[in-house]
């Protein structure tokens, strides 16, 4: 499986869940925090990708 997007989603999900369970105690807080981290990671990467798009390799 060599898709950047699939690995971005998978990796972000693992890291988001890990830190949510590590740092939050209530289930509701864990879900909220995991969602925030996941959105931050995937969204941040997509924004960065668009910013880098005009530059040649």
């Amino acid at each position: 499986m060599a898709s950047h997007v699939v690995h971005l989603v998978l990796y972000s999900a693992i890291v988001a869940l890990f830190f949510a369970v590590l740092t939050r105690r209530e289930r509701r807080e864990q879900l909220r925090f995991a969602g925030l981290v996941f959105a931050g990671m995937t969204g941040g990467v997509l924004v960065l990708a668009y910013l880098m798009y005009p530059f040649p390799r």
Partner: peptide, 20 residues
């Protein structure tokens, strides 16, 4: 329960690493 979640996440990541 927390330990089980951590086991799944850490070993899942490790397994994905070896598989790739």
């Amino acid at each position: 329960r927390r330990g089980i979640v951590f086991f799944v996440l850490v070993m899942g990541s490790f397994g994905l690493g070896l598989a790739h």
